[in-house]
C-alpha cells in the first residue's frame, strides 16, 4: 500500500485549559474545604470541650510540673512570692472564680513574654518583668493569662489541630495536603488571634474591677510593640497575635472615664532574677 504522509493539524491530546486558572480553582476549593473543616471542628469542638468541666481538668493537671524541662525557671523566690501574692489578691478582689491552682513562675528570658501552661501555671519572662514599670501593666498581663484559662483555650486549640489531622488523614489527603496545610495554617492563625482578643477582654474586665479604670493597662502592648518592629510591617493574617495597635485600640474603646492612679512597679533586674 502506498504511504501518504499527512501532518497533524491539531493536538487533541492536550486540553486547552490554562494552568493558572486551574490552580486558582483548586486553591479556592481547598480553601473552602479547610474553612468548612476548621469551622466544623472548632464549633463542634467547643461544645465538646465545655462538656469536660474545668474542675475535672484542673484536678487532673493539678500536679503537672514539667516547665523545668522546657524553660530555665528563675529561683528568685522573693519576686516569685510577690507575684503570687499579687495574683491571689487580684483573684480575690475581682472575685474571679476558676477551679485551677494558679501559680506564677518566672522564666529566664530576655524577650518580654508571658504565657499560660495547662493546669494553672502562668509563666512570665524576666525580660518582661524588667520592662514593666507599672503594677497596672503587670496586672493586665496576669489577667490576660487568666483569660486563656477561663476560655479553655488550650483545650480548644488541641481540638482544632486534632480535628484537622483527623480530617486530613480520614479523607485520604496525607501527602497531597501540602496546600491544605498551608491554607489551614493561615486560618488557624485567625482563630489564635480571636483567642488573644478574648483573653484581652477578660483582662480589661479584671483590670477595671481591680483598679477602677484602664489607665496604664496598655503598658503591656507598649512594651511588646517596642520588640515588634519587624513584625509590624507584616499583615496580620500571618501573625499569632493581633497587632499591638489593634489591641491598644480595644482597651481605649473599653475605657471608662475613671482616671485611676497608675501604681508604680519595679522588679529586680534581669541579672538578679537569673544568675
Amino acid at each position: 500500500m502506498k504511504y501518504v504522509p499527512k501532518p497533524d493539524l491539531d493536538n487533541p491530546n492536550v486540553s486547552k485549559s490554562h494552568p493558572l486558572i486551574d490552580l486558582a480553582f483548586l486553591l479556592g476549593g481547598v480553601t473552602a474545604l479547610a474553612l468548612i473543616a476548621l469551622f466544623a471542628f472548632q464549633k463542634f469542638g467547643e461544645r465538646l470541650v465545655v462538656l469536660l468541666p474545668a474542675e475535672k481538668e484542673a484536678a487532673w493537671l493539678k500536679n503537672l510540673s514539667v516547665e523545668k524541662e522546657f524553660f530555665k525557671v528563675s529561683s528568685h523566690w522573693r519576686t516569685e512570692r510577690e507575684l503570687n501574692e499579687l495574683l491571689n489578691d487580684l483573684i480575690k478582689k475581682t472575685q474571679f472564680v476558676s477551679p485551677y491552682n494558679f501559680n506564677v513562675k518566672i522564666v529566664c528570658d530576655e524577650t518580654p513574654n508571658a504565657f499560660a501552661i495547662p493546669g494553672g501555671k502562668i509563666m512570665v519572662t524576666s525580660g518582661l518583668l524588667e520592662r514593666l514599670k507599672t503594677k497596672n501593666g503587670l496586672v493586665f498581663t496576669l489577667s490576660h493569662e487568666l483569660g486563656h484559662f477561663k476560655g479553655r483555650h488550650h483545650l480548644k486549640k488541641i481540638i482544632r489541630s486534632v480535628g484537622m489531622s483527623f480530617f486530613t488523614s480520614l479523607a485520604g489527603f496525607e501527602s497531597q495536603s501540602q496546600a491544605l496545610t498551608l491554607v489551614s495554617g493561615l486560618l488557624n492563625l485567625s482563630f489564635d488571634r480571636e483567642q488573644e482578643l478574648a483573653a484581652d477582654l477578660l483582662a480589661i474586665e479584671l483590670s477595671k474591677k481591680y483598679f477602677g479604670g484602664l489607665n496604664g493597662a496598655s503598658e503591656l502592648f507598649e512594651v511588646l510593640s517596642k520588640e515588634e518592629s519587624l513584625s509590624s510591617s507584616i499583615p496580620s493574617w500571618f501573625l499569632t497575635h493581633p497587632h499591638s495597635e489593634e489591641r491598644i485600640k480595644v482597651i481605649r474603646e473599653n475605657s471608662n472615664e475613671n482616671q485611676n492612679e497608675i501604681e508604680k512597679y519595679q522588679a529586680p533586674g534581669n541579672k538578679s532574677l537569673c544568675l
Binding site: 492536550v14 486540553s15 494552568p19 490552580l23 483548586l26 486553591l27 481547598v30 474545604l33 501540602q178 496546600a179
Partner: peptide
C-alpha cells in the same frame, strides 16, 4: 504541575497539567 496534580488528587477529574 506537581502542585496542581496533588491538589487534583483531592477533587479528582482530568489532570490537564500532566497531559
Amino acid at each position: 504541575k506537581t502542585f496542581i496534580a496533588n491538589l487534583k488528587n483531592i477533587f479528582g477529574g482530568r489532570l490537564s497539567s500532566f497531559e
